[in-house]
């Protein structure tokens, strides 16, 4: 399926024939008895930008970890369209809440790590790292060390590292939560641009309604105790969006709807 057909399909909010990955009645409970997720069913379609928002403890990060294979389901199943996919990290990029860089390694070496762990030839690694750093605008900082970078730049390295394997699916767990608003807006724009350039699928966990509405083609709102999906909104506006979208009536309307749904999803004991 080519890109034009795909975006047309998204614009009409029509599901693609086969989801990239489906969670079917997935539940997850921890040894201490906490039920993080219960009967969660969610399809992730190729090319979409899907945001998960919800109060703390709603299991949005847990869902991401399950998709990444960092944690195993207690019940239900995760079905990949391509069965080989999801085996290891080959087709998945993960951006954590913290930049999670190796402080002893240069920007270049940090971005090269996934490829080294996948045992690619050195020449190929160099080429791909260069491309990934150029994508996030850090090609002039390849020999810098993490401590020499600002918070936003560290996060860019982290994104470059996630993109270096050219993943089909990019999982992001509140990646910009710790950044100031200006940096955050800029990284939102960069991420939107990258996603449409690379055509990868993104599952994005955030606390921010505004961020999720700006970036996403679909928002899923979750509630806690037990973690579950309570609402979903398709945002029918082409990606990537630009600053002007923040003044679009649609943006305001979806923000209002999402905020209301989020408010309903939150019990008195919940906090964002």
């Amino acid at each position: 399926m080519n890109q034009a057909v795909l975006s047309a399909a998204l614009a009409e909010a029509m599901p693609s024939p086969a989801p990239l990955v489906s969670l079917r009645d997935v539940s997850k409970s921890f040894d201490n008895g906490t039920v993080a997720l219960e009967a969660l069913s969610l399809d992730v379609f190729e090319g979409e930008f899907l945001s998960l928002i919800g109060p703390s403890g709603c299991g949005k990060s847990t869902a991401l970890r399950l998709l990444a294979g960092l944690s195993q389901v207690s019940g239900g199943s995760i079905d990949w369209r391509d069965p080989a996919r999801g085996e290891r990290g080959r087709d998945i990029g993960f951006v954590f809440q913290e930049p999670t860089l190796m402080p002893w390694a240069s920007v270049e070496a940090n971005a090269a790590l996934p490829l080294k762990l996948l045992h690619l030839p050195a020449g190929e690694i160099r080429l791909r790292v260069e491309q990934a750093l150029a994508l996030v605008g850090l090609h002039n900082f390849r020999s810098a060390y993490p401590r020499e970078l600002s918070g936003g730049m560290k996060m860019r390295v982290s994104i470059a590292r996630a993109l270096v394997t050219r993943p089909k699916l990019l999982l992001m767990d509140e990646p910009f939560a710790a950044l100031d608003e200006i940096t955050r807006f800029r990284l939102n724009d960069d991420l939107a641009r990258l996603q449409s350039e690379l055509g990868c699928t993104v599952v994005f966990v955030t606390h921010s309604v505004y961020e999720s509405v700006y970036l996403s083609s679909r928002i899923v709102i979750m509630a806690a105790r037990p973690g579950r999906i309570v609402h979903a909104i398709d945002i029918i506006a082409p990606l990537p969006r630009e600053e002007a979208f923040r003044r679009d009536p649609l943006y305001g309307a979806v923000c209002a709807e999402a905020s209301r749904a989020l408010h309903d999803a939150m019990g008195s004991a919940d906090h964002l």
Binding site: A68, L70, R88, F96, L113, L117, L118
Partner: peptide, 9 residues
């Protein structure tokens, strides 16, 4: 970082 290493097998 432990998670990251696990992700890439």
């Amino acid at each position: 970082l432990v998670n990251l290493f696990a992700l890439y097998g």
